[in-house]
Amino acid sequence: MRSDNFLESSIKGISEITQDWLADFGGILMFLGSFIYWTFKRPYRIREIFRQMDFVGVQSGMLIIMTGAFTGMVSALQGYNGMSRYGAGSLVGATTALALARELGPVLTGLMVVGRVGSAMTAEIGSMRNTQQIDAISSMAVAPIQYLVSPRIIATTLTLPFLSVVFGFSGMVGAYLIATQYLHIDAGAFMSGIKDYMTPNDVTQGLIKAFVFGFLLSLVACFKGYNAGGGARGVGVATTKSVVLSSVLILFSDYVMTTIMF
């Protein structure tokens, strides 16, 4: 009897989540259509795009540098731990660089930006929805998608590759310091490993990923905020869902892109 109830409630729960996600998917596609339509219509909100780039990029700089540096340091330590068993400890520079450029840089930058920027976007737009500020924009003959959403999506999409590069660079600085100062690997061996094994394609793949992640996370963040109802609680729920969905989408699209570009 108890197992029947458990099975029933599990199926119900899964069905509700699936319905929720399907509704989200349909809603996001419609929202994407509106975004494309309004983005290419005049007036172009260049000043607002730069303002958002400052918020997404410049103001995230310190966070990205710190997370990048620690990630690079940990990668160097763990990489050395594994590879020194096969006598290839000096290749730690190459493996860290490859990991940062192809995977860790774009994915961790995406996830950090989801936490700092995506959540803020959802909360801000959601609170504007709940206090009729979006209605006020509409009533003043301005398209809210064009004024609020387009600049945020464009800015995040263009800025994330730069942040990913910053992440990768600070990661390499961290890895270099750990490798040369703590693990006593020769600086020349560290650098030549990178030169020998890294290709421009590795960097390009990472940049493409970061570009896609920036687009996905800002699209989801704006969509969830734009459709947030139910007052303060509604904004809270929308923000949580936005962070969860963006993070899952980043990891999922990372897998898809890695498979395609492998």
Partner: peptide, 20 residues
């Protein structure tokens, strides 16, 4: 089309709906 007409409107919302 609506925006063309809305340019002639002014709207005062219940709580002002000012951009905070």
């Amino acid at each position: 089309e609506l925006n063309t007409i809305r340019r002639r409107f002014g709207v005062l919302f219940q709580d002002g709906a000012l951009f905070d």
